[in-house]
Design a protein around this nucleic acid. Structure first.
Lengths: 194, 194
DNA sequence: GGGTGCATGTAATGGGTTACATGATTCT
DNA sequence: AGAATCATGTAACCCATTACATGCACCC
């Protein structure tokens, strides 16, 4: 009974935290802020995950906690990776990506679009279009920033992730425009239907 | 004390169930199977959601249950939409799409790709590529099927949802190939890094 | 005086998957 | 003989968001 038990710390969230801490020592608050400026467009964590997560990681010896006293403000709890934590991160990075079941509410609503006026589907698609147009602007801005301080060895990786966002949003915009046209045509040709 | 309370039945799952039942009366088992042949590529539900979900919907008067006795096999519980259920579905369809926080594990791993050999990232991207190539084949097959019996008024909507899948997978394939090239270049030019 | 930012955390609640439990029939 | 399909459902567990609770400092 002890195959490779090692009841330690699973969960993608923990590993995301390790990854973020690999960029430097940080508090939970810092982590949230860093997410916003870096991986926010493809990953998110709430405080309700971050604080308990850090605690668990500390208990497992994967991160180390140091308390910085401050005047006025509450103490800062700054966490940093331990050697074990860095190893754990690498191991996890090597594991195959676990894909989760798809859930796309826009498509679900569009699929059943026959039950409602076409204008409803139009609106959903339009909003989707606008979101992705906005996203494209954001990506462009981030890419610009990245190329500015394009020194680090990690930058190419950051650009690759950005690029998937861009490809995806480009495709989404294209699809949305086509779909709006199709909806308009449906509207015109709606001959003998109730 | 009674603004617009109406504590009834929220949750996207319930509404997905209503949508599926709008295609005809069905049992929980049938629903699972239907998902596989229709919206499976952008939506999924497990039995653990379906059976309790149907029960709640029945309690709320949105669906009606009829039991079909069978020999040998367990009874079939066939559910069908009530008028109230159909109304509820339409209302929900009109509501704006609620987008959920993004979580893309592939990008997360790629983002931190600097910590591991490039071959690791290569493998992740390759698997992603293959998944989407496979998906494209599936989409093509479904589209063919759909155009075969292209009578119903709903078919255009089915094709629109399919089309987003196609656009998305096309983009993903394109990105994956580009990214593999970049990874190879990184590998070649890895001059003065530890 | 009021909003925003700094900074921590917990509790309630919701949503979901997976594994378990059961068992006959039909196909290979 | 064994696998797949039909058919239902529950229980344990995990993961995650949101709301709550607290409170000072700084800027307008």
């Amino acid at each position: 009974m002890s195959r490779k038990a090692k009841r330690t710390e699973g969960g993608t969230t923990s590993n995301a935290l390790l990854g973020l801490l690999s960029m430097g020592p940080m508090s939970g608050y810092d982590i949230r802020a860093l997410i916003g400026r870096s991986i926010g467009y493809f990953w998110s964590e709430s405080y309700g995950q971050i604080y308990p997560g850090l605690k668990r990681l500390a208990a497992a010896g994967l991160v180390e906690k140091k308390t910085e006293r401050q005047k006025g403000r509450p103490d800062r709890h700054v966490y940093s990776l331990t050697a074990a934590g860095r190893m754990r991160l690498k191991e996890w990075l090597k594991l195959p990506v676990t894909s989760e079941p798809p859930r796309n509410e826009l498509l679900l609503k569009l699929f059943f679009g026959g039950h409602v006026p076409h204008s409803v589907s139009r609106e959903h698609v339009t909003e989707f279009l606008e979101e992705h147009e906005q996203a494209l602007k954001t990506y462009a801005a981030i890419a610009k920033d990245l190329r500015k301080d394009a020194d680090g060895a990690e930058v190419p990786f950051y650009l690759m992730t950005l690029s998937l966002g861009k490809h995806g949003s480009d495709a989404s915009v294209k699809w949305a425009r086509e779909t709006l046209k199709k909806l308009d045509e449906l509207e015109k040709h709606k001959g003998g239907r109730r």
